[in-house]
Simulated assay, not measured.
Amino acid sequence: MEIASGQGSDARDQVNSNEKAIAALGRSRGVLSAALNSFSSGSFILSVADAATSVIHAQNIVISILVIVALLGTVAFPLFVVQVFRVVLRRIMLEARIYEKVPLRRFLYPLQSKRWVRMAWTMMVENAYLMLWWLTFVGGIIKTYSYFLVPYIVAENPNISANQAISLSRRIMKGHKWECFVAQVSFLVWYLLNGATVGLSGIFYSNGYNAAFFAEYYAYLRAVAKENGIEGAGS
């Protein structure tokens, strides 16, 4: 932030101070340590800023570019990594219902299916709709459960459009929203235990149990929807 405010010398002093503190901790040898120290101390960011300034010869423009890149990165990571990973986990759990073993390469499912961007777009649209519905509060609660199956639907059919996935989830969840809420509440003790153990109980047990349960729940809802003739549920 000091670089952005034009206090370049203060920023350099802070970086030097950080580097000395890191060196005092003994983490100063090796290529990996050097790279890690560069990020930790802030010298990497400062070096990028200096390099860009030497090319563009306008510090304000460089700062603006860095701020824009940082903002894009802040948006891109949740969208292309976190949200898509939600889909990947559901794909893995759905396959685990059928196959005895699921290969590790399934974590690369978005790349294998060549639908990474499409998945990210669908999840972005879902989150945008939810954000707008949450402005009404009650609508946000209802639509959270209406759209509950979107990542499962995308996991099974990565070619589906965003609006089709949302619409299908809404139709399948009709009459099941309260049921889904009760199912989530049944895990409340596990959620509390997970928090009390700093995530350890979740890592070693409850997260997997929770994911497996809702994968089965999706399969059940999908079967019911297929029996009821809901369009798209059988594809």
Rank of each mutant, 00 (worst) to 15 (best):
L66V: 03
E19H: 04
D10N: 13
T74Y: 14
R171V: 05
T53E: 14
E95A: 13
T197V: 07
L79I: 09
V15Y: 06
F213L: 02
N37V: 11
L168R: 00
L132N: 05
V15I: 15
R118P: 01
R12G: 02
Y209L: 09
R118N: 09
N207K: 13
G73R: 11
L71I: 15
A212C: 01
Y129D: 06
V31H: 07
L108E: 09
D10Y: 14
F107Q: 10
T197F: 09
V224L: 12
G8L: 12
A233R: 06
L132H: 07
E227Y: 04
A225M: 05
A225K: 01
Q14C: 04
V48P: 04
L108T: 10
K114E: 08
G73P: 05
V182H: 01
K101E: 15
G8A: 11
K226D: 09
A225I: 01
T197C: 07
N16Q: 12
A49H: 13
L193F: 10
G229K: 08
N210E: 09
Y99M: 06
S235E: 13
M124L: 12
Y147P: 05
A51S: 14
V15Q: 05
V55F: 11
E2M: 13
R105G: 09
F148M: 08
F137N: 07
L72I: 10
L221K: 09
Y191T: 00
V88R: 03
I45H: 08
R97C: 03
Y109K: 01
K143S: 06
I98E: 15
F213G: 05
G199K: 02
S43W: 02
V125D: 04
L111D: 00
V185F: 14
G42R: 00
N18S: 11
Y145P: 00
A225V: 04
G26V: 10
R118H: 15
A162W: 03
G139W: 08
A211W: 04
G140C: 08
R106Y: 15
F214K: 01
Q83L: 12
S235C: 01
M93C: 00
S186N: 06
E231L: 05
M124C: 08
A4N: 06
G232V: 04
I45S: 12
L104M: 12
N18L: 08
S41M: 10
A219N: 02
K177F: 07
L221A: 06
M131L: 13
M1D: 10
S40A: 15
N210C: 00
S167C: 03
I3H: 00
G8Y: 13
M119F: 01
V138I: 15
F77T: 07
S5G: 12
N127T: 05
N228K: 15
T74E: 09
V198T: 08
Q7M: 06
